[in-house]
Nucleic acid binder design. Structure first.
Lengths: 235, 235
DNA sequence: TAGAATATCTACTCATGAGTATGATCGAGG
DNA sequence: CCTCGATCATACTCATGAGTAGATATTCTA
C-alpha cells in the first residue's frame, strides 16, 4: 500500500496535498468489495459453498470472474470474509453486555438473542457452516479461534449464572453446545420458513431455553395416560 | 435380479434346488456393500462430502474406484445410503414409543434420547448434513420427505404434550426446530469432543430441554448484580 | 492531451474428480 | 481342465471450476 503511493511521487509530498481523490477511490473500491462479499454470501446461502463457482458470483454481479478476483484473493478468503461479517455482530453483543449490572442469565439471554438474529441474517449460513475441512490450515485455525471465543463466552456466562444463582446448576459445556446448536440450526431452516422475523425467533428460543418444556403452571395434571387413548380413539 | 437367475437355467428349476450358494453370494455381497457404505460414512464424517473422493473411499477399503462402483451406483446414492442408515434408528424410536401409555413429554424425551444417540453415531453426520443442494431433485425430495416425517413426529408429540398437560404451552414448530437443532449440532462437535458417551449427552440434553436454565430450587437468589462486580475485581 | 493508475474483459491453463470401457483373475460346476 | 459368471484392476474420458496472463477500457493527474 505504501509502494502504490510512493511510485508516482517518490518524495511523498503531493499525495498529502491532494488526498481526496485517493480517498474517494479507496472508498469506492471498498464498497464494491463489500458488494462482492454480500453476493458471495447470498450464493453460498442458496447453493452451498461447494456448489457455488466464482463464475456464479460474478454473474450475479453482472461482471466476470477476473473482476471478482480483482477484489478478493480467492474463494477461501471470500468465505472467510463472509464468516467475519457473520460473527462480528455476535462479538459485539458480548462487548455490549459485558458491563451491564444484570444477573448473568439475563446477560446470556441478551447475547443469545443477538446470536439468533445474526444466524438468521444474510451471513448467518456462512458463519455457521464455514467448515474447517474446506479451508487451509491457517484459515481453519483462525475460524476455530473465533468460534471458540464465542463458545467460551457463552460458557462463562453460564458459569457466572450458576454462581450468582440465576441459572440452574448444569454442565456449562454441554449447555453451551445445546444453546448454540439450537440457534445455529436456524441457518438451515430459515431460508425455507420465514414465518417469523429473526427477532421473534430469537425471543421464542430464549423463552424456551429459560423455562424448558415442563409446565410451570401450578395446576399441572399428573401422568394421565388415558387422555391420550381417548384422543387416538376419536379418529 | 430375476434375469441373473434365469440366464444359467432358463427352465428355472436348478436355482430352487440349490439356493444356498446363491444366498451365500448375496449375503457376501451385501456385507461388502455395507462395508463400502460404512467407509463412506467415516470419510464423509472426517472430510465432508465434497472433500471426499471415491478414490479416497476406495483407498480406505484397499480396493480401487471401479470396485466401489461395483457396489454402489454413484456418490450421491452412497450419501443417500448413509443418510438412511442414520435416520432409521430415529424412525424406529418413533415406532417404539407409539403405543406406550405415558404422558407425551416422556414419550418425546425417549425419542429425543434416541435421536441424540443417532446423531452422535457413525452415520449421524451424513444424516444431519445431507444437503438437498448436493443432490439430484429426486434424491432431494426423498431426503426432505424423511426429514419432514421426523420433524412432524416431534411436533405432534409436542402438541400432544400441550394437550395432556405434560408440556408447557408453546409454539410446536419453533420448539421442534430448537430441540432438533440442538441435537443435530452434536454431529458438529462430537468428533472433536468425546468426553461423554452419546447416551450421556442425550440424557444431559433432555434434562436441559425439560427444565431450562431458570433455577428450580426455591431458594433462588434475586438479581444481585454486585456479586459479579466482586468477581471481576478479584482478578 | 500524454500517460499513469485503476478497473474490467477475453481467453486461456491446469488439477481434480466423477464415471466408464475393457481386460485380468478367481472360484465353482460340468 | 474348461467355461462362465462374479469380482476387481488398469487406464482411460470428460466436465467442471479455480486461478491467471495479457489485452483493453476508463479515469484521473500533470
Amino acid at each position: 500500500m505504501n509502494s502504490r503511493r510512493a511510485s508516482p511521487h517518490p518524495a511523498g509530498k503531493s499525495p498529502a496535498a491532494s488526498p481526496s481523490p485517493w480517498r474517494a477511490r479507496r472508498r469506492d473500491r471498498e464498497v464494491k468489495r463489500e458488494a462482492v462479499i454480500r453476493a458471495a454470501a447470498r450464493a453460498f446461502n442458496r447453493k452451498g459453498y461447494h456448489n457455488t463457482s466464482l463464475d456464479d458470483i460474478a454473474a450475479a454481479l453482472e461482471v466476470t470472474k477476473p473482476t471478482v478476483y480483482y477484489y478478493v484473493t480467492n474463494k477461501e478468503h471470500l468465505l472467510f470474509q463472509c464468516f467475519l461479517a457473520g460473527v462480528e455482530p455476535i462479538r459485539a453483543a458480548f462487548r455490549e453486555v459485558k458491563d451491564l449490572e444484570l444477573p448473568a442469565r439475563e446477560r446470556l439471554n441478551a447475547v443469545l438473542r443477538h446470536y439468533g438474529e445474526a444466524v438468521a441474517c444474510e451471513f448467518g449460513w456462512c458463519m455457521v457452516r464455514a467448515e474447517d475441512q474446506d479451508l487451509s490450515p491457517a484459515m481453519s485455525r483462525h475460524i476455530k479461534a473465533l468460534k471458540s471465543e464465542i463458545d467460551q463466552g457463552i460458557r462463562r456466562l453460564i458459569r457466572e449464572g450458576i454462581q450468582d444463582g440465576s441459572i440452574e446448576s448444569c454442565d456449562p459445556k454441554m449447555t453451551a453446545f445445546a444453546l448454540a446448536g439450537a440457534l445455529n440450526w436456524i441457518a438451515h431452516w430459515y431460508r425455507e420458513d420465514q414465518s417469523l422475523t429473526p427477532a421473534e425467533i430469537a425471543a421464542v428460543f430464549v423463552t424456551l431455553f429459560e423455562g424448558g418444556l415442563r409446565p410451570r403452571s401450578a395446576a399441572q395434571v399428573a401422568t394421565r395416560a388415558p387422555l391420550r387413548r381417548r384422543v387416538r380413539i376419536t379418529r
